[in-house]
Simulated assay, not measured.
Amino acid sequence: MTSKTPDAAAAGTWKLGDLTVNRVGFGAMRLTQNGPAFGKDRGPHDRDRAIAVLRRAVELGVNHIDTAAFYFSPLRSANELISRALGPYTDDLVITTKVGPGRGPGGDWLDWARPEQLRGQVEENIRQLGRDHLDVVNLRVNGPAPISEQFGALADLRKEGLIRHLGLSNVWPEQIAEARAIAPIVCVQNRYGIGERRADSQDILRTCGELGIAFVPFYAIAGGGREGGADVTAEHEALLAVARAHDASPAQVRLAWTLQQGPHVLAIPGTGNPAHLEANVAAGALRLTEDETRRLAALGQNAG
Score class of each variant (00 low, 15 high):
residue 132 D to A: 14
residue 132 D to L: 07
residue 129 L to C: 04
residue 145 A to C: 03
residue 166 L to D: 09
residue 131 R to M: 05
residue 153 A to N: 12
residue 117 Q to L: 07
residue 142 N to V: 03
residue 116 E to D: 14
residue 118 L to K: 05
residue 121 Q to F: 08
residue 151 F to M: 01
residue 146 P to M: 13
residue 165 H to I: 04
residue 124 E to L: 15
residue 160 E to T: 05
residue 149 E to K: 15
residue 165 H to C: 09
residue 149 E to W: 05
residue 136 V to N: 11
residue 128 Q to S: 05
residue 115 P to G: 13
residue 156 D to V: 11
residue 144 P to T: 01
residue 133 H to R: 15
residue 146 P to N: 14
residue 127 R to A: 14
residue 161 G to M: 02
residue 136 V to L: 07
residue 144 P to A: 12
residue 155 A to C: 09
residue 118 L to F: 06
residue 139 L to K: 03
residue 148 S to D: 14
residue 134 L to E: 07
residue 162 L to H: 05
residue 164 R to P: 08
residue 150 Q to D: 10
residue 163 I to H: 09
residue 129 L to H: 01
residue 155 A to N: 09
residue 135 D to G: 01
residue 115 P to E: 10
residue 116 E to V: 04
residue 161 G to T: 00
residue 153 A to W: 06
residue 153 A to R: 10
residue 129 L to A: 07
residue 161 G to Q: 05
residue 117 Q to M: 11
residue 133 H to D: 11
residue 146 P to S: 13
residue 166 L to W: 10
residue 136 V to P: 00
residue 143 G to R: 09
residue 118 L to H: 07
residue 124 E to N: 14
residue 164 R to L: 12
residue 153 A to E: 12
residue 147 I to A: 09
residue 162 L to M: 14
residue 147 I to C: 06
residue 139 L to W: 06
residue 138 N to V: 03
residue 131 R to H: 06
residue 141 V to N: 02
residue 130 G to T: 03
residue 148 S to C: 01
residue 147 I to Y: 00
residue 151 F to A: 08
residue 151 F to R: 02
residue 124 E to M: 11
residue 119 R to D: 12
residue 154 L to A: 10
residue 146 P to K: 13
